[in-house]
């Protein structure tokens, strides 16, 4: 029995190591494929003629689609942050720091990340489903065989639109968040909007705004990348549309956190 047991263990170890090796290989291939897709985006971005009308249409669609949700979440974010922080600051007699603290928290971190996650869910899944559906119904193939550069028309325009619109939505969300904070501060207090905004903005510096803006551009880029990559490379079959949308959200959310982590490290080194 002993040799058999040893053989079984050996077989299991070999099998498990070969499985993990295959998984590792698959992971490497996937990472390489994502990189190639991103590089192709940058390569095709500078190819003329640029699909300007489609870019504007996508930009409008992305902004319009997310505006409502960004408004609600941005407002609640500022309101809740203020309501939660106010008693603690009051205990230390530092209530006057509230506008500045909330503004820095929102502009530096909470605003960009929450807005990016909203867009990852709303926009990433939309792009993944739309392109996935186009792949399944052979619309992308039809563009390909008519020699009309589907990558340029479908992917470049969407990725560029998310890269530009997400930072704009972040600015908007920051502003709405500070307004929410003002409402929170006035629930059991009395501060004028002018004073609140003055205190909030005076505590902000360019070193808060610039990294957050650059980070937001990358958030937009990875949201577009995830949606386009998953949709454009969807398999045949109707099930693939749902899979593409789902995987686009998961990948976009993970990439947002990854970019955030890298951005924080980078900002700490630079500033």
């Amino acid at each position: 029995m002993r040799p058999n047991l040893a053989q079984n263990i050996k077989k299991t170890v070999v099998l498990k190591s070969s499985v993990s090796m295959n998984q590792f290989q698959t992971l490497l291939i996937n990472v390489a494929d994502w990189w190639l897709f991103l590089l192709r985006f940058f390569k095709e971005l500078f190819h003329l003629p640029f699909e300007f009308n489609e870019f504007v249409r996508q930009g409008y669609k992305i902004g319009n689609k997310s505006l409502g949700l960004v408004t609600i979440t941005g407002f609640i974010m500022g309101l809740v942050l203020t309501i939660q922080s106010k008693p603690t600051l009051a205990d230390f007699g530092a209530e006057s720091w509230l506008p500045g603290m909330v503004a820095i928290s929102i502009v530096r971190e909470i605003g960009p990340v929450i807005t990016a996650l909203i867009c990852a869910g709303k926009v990433g899944s939309g792009i993944g489903a739309e392109l996935g559906s186009m792949r399944v119904t052979e619309q992308i193939d039809a563009m390909e065989v008519s020699g009309t550069h589907p990558f340029r028309f479908l992917v470049v325009t969407r990725m560029l639109a998310t890269s530009i619109i997400v930072p704009i939505l972040v600015f908007y969300s920051d502003f709405v968040g500070i307004l929410g904070s003002y409402v929170g501060a006035n629930i059991d207090g009395d501060v004028t909007l002018q004073l609140f905004l003055m205190q909030a903005t005076s505590s902000l510096e360019f070193s808060d705004l610039i990294p957050a803006t650059i980070k937001s551009v990358f958030f937009g880029l990875v949201i577009g990348l995830a949606g386009c990559y998953k949709g454009y490379n969807a398999n045949k079959g109707t099930e693939s549309v749902g899979v593409a949308a789902n995987e686009a959200v998961v990948a976009a959310s993970l990439l947002v956190f990854l970019v955030d982590l890298i951005a924080v490290q980078f900002t700490n080194i630079i500033l």
């Binding site: 559906s133 119904t137 052979e138 619309q139 020699g147």
Partner: peptide, 21 residues
């Protein structure tokens, strides 16, 4: 050149493959 060549070859897909947007 492949894209130019493709313009000289028409392909009708099984479902028509019309761009639905």
């Amino acid at each position: 050149d492949l894209n130019k060549m493709r313009a000289r070859i028409g392909f009708l897909f099984q479902g028509g493959a019309l761009y639905d947007s």
